[in-house]
C-alpha cells in the first residue's frame, strides 16, 4: 500500500485512510480493494493521498476522496489533498484475500486471479455462486449494477448474483 520509505506517521495515516469503506460495497475497505496507492506528509499538517480508480469513469472516486478527507480531518490533519493516479493500472488482482472473502459474504462472486498477462480471461473457468456455492452458474449480462460487475444466475439455487469482473 505504502511504497518507498514511509514514516511511522505516514503508516498510521495510511491505516486510517485505508480503513475507509468503499461507498458502493460498504463491507470492503479501500485497503482491501487495493485502491490506496500512498499517503505522504508534504508539510506540517499537510497530507497528500494517492488513490487509483478501479475504472477510469468510476463515479465512486469522488465519494472515496471526500471520505478519506473526513477520516484524516477527524484524526487532526487539517490539510488533505487526494490525487488520483492511473498508472500502474488497477487490477482485480489488487483485491486482498480478506477482500475476496468479504465480497463473497456480501453476495458478490469475487474476481478470479489473472496472473501477469492481464485483460479479461476466458469465461470458461467456473464462477461459484456466492449463495449456495454451486459452480453451475451462467452469464446473464456482461454489465451489471456497476461497470465492474457482471450479472449471473445460479442454476442450482436459481438466485441471480453479481460477479466482480476480472480487470
Amino acid at each position: 500500500m505504502v511504497t518507498g520509505t514511509a514514516t511511522p506517521l505516514e503508516e498510521e495515516l495510511a491505516r486510517i485512510a485505508g480503513a475507509v469503506l468503499d461507498p458502493e460495497m460498504p463491507v470492503l475497505t479501500l485497503a482491501e480493494l487495493g485502491v490506496l496507492r500512498g499517503v505522504h506528509v508534504t508539510g506540517p499538517g499537510r497530507v497528500e493521498v494517492a488513490l487509483t480508480p478501479t475504472y477510469t469513469g468510476c463515479p465512486a472516486v469522488e465519494t472515496m476522496s471526500t471520505d478519506i478527507e473526513h477520516a484524516l480531518h477527524a484524526h487532526g490533519v487539517p490539510d488533505v489533498t487526494v490525487v488520483t493516479v492511473l498508472a500502474p493500472a488497477w487490477s482485480t488482482d489488487d483485491i486482498s484475500e480478506e477482500g475476496r472473502r468479504k465480497l463473497t459474504e456480501f453476495g458478490i462472486a469475487p474476481p478470479r486471479p489473472q496472473g501477469p498477462a492481464g485483460g479479461p480471461v476466458a469465461l470458461t473457468l467456473a464462477i461459484r455462486c456466492p449463495h449456495c456455492g454451486s459452480t453451475d452458474t451462467e452469464l446473464l449480462s456482461r454489465f451489471s449494477s456497476t461497470a465492474c460487475k457482471a450479472l449471473r444466475r445460479c442454476a442450482a439455487c436459481r438466485e441471480p448474483f453479481d460477479h466482480f469482473k476480472e480487470l
Binding site: T66, T81, V82, V83, T84, A87
Partner: peptide, 13 residues
C-alpha cells in the same frame, strides 16, 4: 463536490 473539504486533482498523466 470535493471543494468544500479539500481538492481532488489528477496527478497523472
Amino acid at each position: 463536490t470535493a471543494g468544500a473539504t479539500g481538492t481532488v486533482a489528477t496527478a497523472a498523466p
